[in-house]
Design a binder for these strands. Structure first.
Lengths: 292, 292
DNA sequence: TCCATCTATAAAATTCCGGCATGGATTGGA
DNA sequence: TCCAATCCATGCCGGAATTTTATAGATGGA
């Protein structure tokens, strides 16, 4: 097994073509062709389906990619840790954030890492909870901020955000604590389905045995707030989303309260790597500062 | 980073000398010398302390070994899985067993694996719970049978063994359920301290606020039983240890019952690897058959 | 002191790999 | 229908990297 071969395999797999990978790797295309061929011989499987459009992974290729790519990252990082043993931590650290977290605190977090550990190159991935958990599990990324932890991975509870019913000033439904059951049929503007928040809201609605009248969906909270301000309907959003908006909106908590948990999950490598360990407290701090 | 370099590094590290490794790898010694040198340059650390006795790992070397060896195993196995995609599962699977489990079921288990999956090469490691958990954690082995699971790893409860107070026929303490508090000062022969069982017994004694009068310790249950038969003292052993000995000994359970749990812990790679997945049910069956 | 046992170094031989030129296949457009 | 463009594959060559062979250097024990 040659490591370089595996790396070129991964590169070709992600670019989807020999010629494209050849540009990025600054290696002539025939060389890559031969590398892939040799890897295929070694493995005894066809890894790519060749076509006019380039190279597409076969099932065997996908399996190899899934099994190998995380391990290579960890290997690199392990060597990097040894290299910078008595210096400041160095190397690449990959962190996954759910979109809302990325928007609220991504930049601050990245700056904090750059300031505290100039030797660490941060790789920020954005994705939904389920994908992020999968990546952490496979070692593609070292840690992630997600909305509900996995049972199989150790998760650390960081923040519990309360979700509020938001509407224009003076709306009758916002008088006192909100009850889910009384929202039956009310016009709503809600986060769209790919948002983890929506899942929580829908589940709560189902539990209360009601259905919303969802007039609009949007993934950006900003947009939702504008729709609410226009009087289109009510929304359900985390408290942080309407911070600094006092006066333009009214909001009230639910009874019983509705909330979403933000958890930090670490990959196996995260408990070993020095660079990763250096980043963890910064991520924790940034999260608490932005959302706590 | 070259993979071959890392592998020779590991080999040299475990043999402790260039010349010994050169024999095993069928590679001339100067080649190894150069490989190590280049790895050291690459990492920027001295990995071995050279002496007339051979090569001893420096702290940096130990770190590298710890970080890298598990990953390489998993990498090999990943490639092997792709290679044998549509065939029967193949490759090496490393399993750790606590000594007592190894003695009771090790052979049966190994035979079952060989019978069901001829392509799988089984690597059986024996060790104490704490070591095994560490190895699983670092990916050195794929799974282990241990006495208490780790919090950080998903563990599956397999068997709960009841521990019995064992003594010669007619001993007064064996009349009815035993109570820990009444064993104060009684002469005992117990498993020695490296045995996981002893830890449980000691903790129970401490909880009851008593101390045994430990006349003898032994790690082999067989030996302990002989001492008990000689009338040297009482012992505390799992029920399976005295199976088929009815007539020679009397035994009674504790109130409240004392037991030890046998758990199966899987490494991260175990949830991906095909070969590993094929072995898991066999290990489970063998355990239940021998101890359940 | 001499031998045995390590690792390190130097030079020759070999193997491996990347680059260039080119071929073959497929598709889109004139 | 034919040409051009865009893929990947193959053959050959030169250079880099690695292994082998041979040997030196160091060190502790008979």
């Amino acid at each position: 097994m040659d490591l370089k071969r595996l790396q070129t395999f991964l590169r070709v797999a992600e670019t989807g073509s020999l010629s494209a990978a050849s540009d990025r790797l600054r290696i002539a295309q025939p060389a890559l062709s031969r590398q892939i061929r040799m890897l295929e011989d070694e493995v005894g499987q066809t890894l790519f389906a060749r076509s006019r459009e380039g190279m597409a992974l076969t099932p065997a290729g996908e399996l190899l990619q899934a099994r190998v790519s995380g391990l290579l990252r960890q290997l690199e990082q392990g060597v990097e840790d040894v290299r910078s043993m008595e210096d400041a931590p160095q190397g690449k650290v990959a962190v996954g954030l759910v979109p809302s977290a990325a928007a609220v605190m991504g930049a601050d977090f990245a700056m904090a890492v750059g300031r505290a550990h100039p030797g660490i190159r941060l790789n920020l991935q954005q994705g939904y909870t389920s994908h992020l958990l999968d990546w952490v599990h496979r070692g593609e990324i070292d840690m992630a901020l997600v909305y509900r932890g996995a049972e199989q991975l150790p998760a650390e509870q960081l923040v519990r955000e309360e979700l509020l019913l938001v509407g224009p000033q003076g709306h009758p439904a916002l008088d006192g604590p909100a009850e889910m059951a009384r929202l039956e049929g009310l016009p709503m503007v809600l986060p769209s389905a790919e948002n983890g928040l929506r899942l929580i809201v829908d589940m709560a609605a189902e539990r209360a045995g009601i259905r919303f009248d969802v007039l609009a969906e949007a993934s950006a909270f900003q947009l939702l707030l504008e729709l609410v301000a226009e009087g289109m309907g009510l929304s359900i959003l985390p408290r942080t989303a309407i911070q600094g908006m006092a006066g333009r909106f009214a909001a009230t908590g639910f009874a019983p309260p509705l909330h979403r948990d933000i958890q930090l999950v670490l990959s196996r490598s995260a408990r070993q790597g020095r660079a990763v360990q250096a980043v963890v407290p910064l991520l924790r701090d940034a999260t608490l500062k932005a959302l706590g």
